[in-house]
């Protein structure tokens, strides 16, 4: 199994997934206390997608994220403390408290931002990929988007654009079955149930993988990214996954079957599946994973404590950063 991943790689991937899970579960708890401002969309349950893809990327590679962006940020290497402080609207946040949950960005890490506009990412990453291609630096652009977002014209246009210009771009569809309360079955009627089939029609390789299986995502991404780095053009990867919380915090979720999430957590959790796979193959000891769990819990606790006591932005910040010069 997965010989190309060293023990160090495996532990790193697991740690990233655990960081996402604990970060999101904690934000869920803090939001319920009423201490967090704004809209929050959580990524718990979808960890294997962001991490399975981003483990192949470096800081030169660009990603664009969505409203559900915390997981992509963490997977791309954005610091937890800054992210937590941003969600709290504090001066020490990744964006100085000006963006919040839906706009966390860290351009130095190649993270071009969570996004409040569904479907905004694909054209932006087409541009990132075009820049990569012209600079010939071997970097790639990766856009994450949901099943709902797959219905935006921007996505269809970008698929054609990427194929036309042969761009080093990866379309990563996070198909979690819902766009808000609307089922994918209603809004994306593709004969096969696989939205990836649309992409094939645009003339690019397209695969559908089990998005809760880190190794499936990792392998598909590896192939696609290598092809893109070598000038082989775009690829579309559909990852079937599940979000564990509501569309946003506060969503009553009456549109979901009662035990959908409970069952998924029990039998299809990406972290549990990863742990079972690597321990049963004797690649990593259970105790080593537990040590990661504990260390991540501490890390998240520290991030929350730091965010709580951090100051709000200075009022001068209201008027800065609109332009470079004006």
């Amino acid at each position: 199994m997965k010989a190309q991943l060293s023990k160090e790689d495996l532990l790193k991937a697991y740690r990233k997934m655990r960081e996402i899970r604990e970060f999101e579960d904690r934000v869920h708890v803090e939001f319920a206390k009423g201490t967090l401002p704004g809209f929050v969309h959580l990524y718990s349950g979808e960890e294997a997608v962001a991490v399975g893809i981003c483990e192949h990327l470096n800081d030169l590679d660009r990603i664009a994220s969505t409203h559900r962006g915390h997981g992509h940020c963490i997977a791309k290497g954005v610091e937890l403390e800054g992210m937590m402080a941003e969600i709290y609207g504090k001066k020490t946040g990744t964006c100085g408290g000006k963006g919040g949950s839906m706009h966390i960005a860290d351009l130095d890490k190649g993270m071009m931002g969570a996004n409040g506009i569904v479907g905004a990412g694909p054209p932006l990453i087409a541009g990132a990929a075009l820049a990569s291609k012209l600079r010939k630096d071997g970097s790639v652009g990766v856009v994450f988007f949901g099943d709902g977002a797959s219905n935006q014209g921007t996505n269809f246009e970008s698929m054609n654009f990427a194929v036309t210009l042969d761009l080093p771009m990866i379309f990563v569809l996070e198909n979690n079955g819902y766009a808000e309360s609307t089922s994918t079955k209603y809004s994306a009627k593709v004969g096969s149930d696989n939205i990836a089939d649309r992409a094939r029609g645009f003339g690019m390789p397209a695969v559908t993988v089990d998005g809760n299986d880190f190794f499936a995502v990792y392998e598909a991404a590896g192939e696609a990214i290598e092809r893109a780095r070598k000038g082989g053009g775009p690829t579309f990867i559909e990852c079937k996954t599940m979000r564990y919380f509501g569309h946003f915090e506060g969503d009553a979720q009456t549109y979901r079957p009662k035990d959908e999430v409970k069952n998924a957590r029990a039998s299809n959790c990406p972290l549990k599946r990863f742990a079972a796979a690597v321990t049963s193959a004797g690649l990593v000891e259970a105790a080593e994973l537990e040590a990661v769990d504990k260390s991540v819990l501490d890390q998240v606790e520290k991030a929350v404590k730091a965010a709580e006591v951090a100051p709000q932005p200075d009022l001068d910040a209201l008027m800065t950063d609109v332009y470079v010069s004006y």
């Binding site: 766009a179 808000e180 309360s181 609307t182 089922s183 994918t184 079955k185 209603y186 809004s187 009456t254 549109y255 979901r256 079957p257």
Partner: peptide
């Protein structure tokens, strides 16, 4: 509009949202 009723395509009760 988006989710102006809600739960379209699911097996649950429609009108789950009535808009965001």
């Amino acid at each position: 509009g988006l989710d102006v009723a809600g739960a379209a395509g699911t097996e649950q009760q429609r009108d789950a949202w009535g808009g965001v």
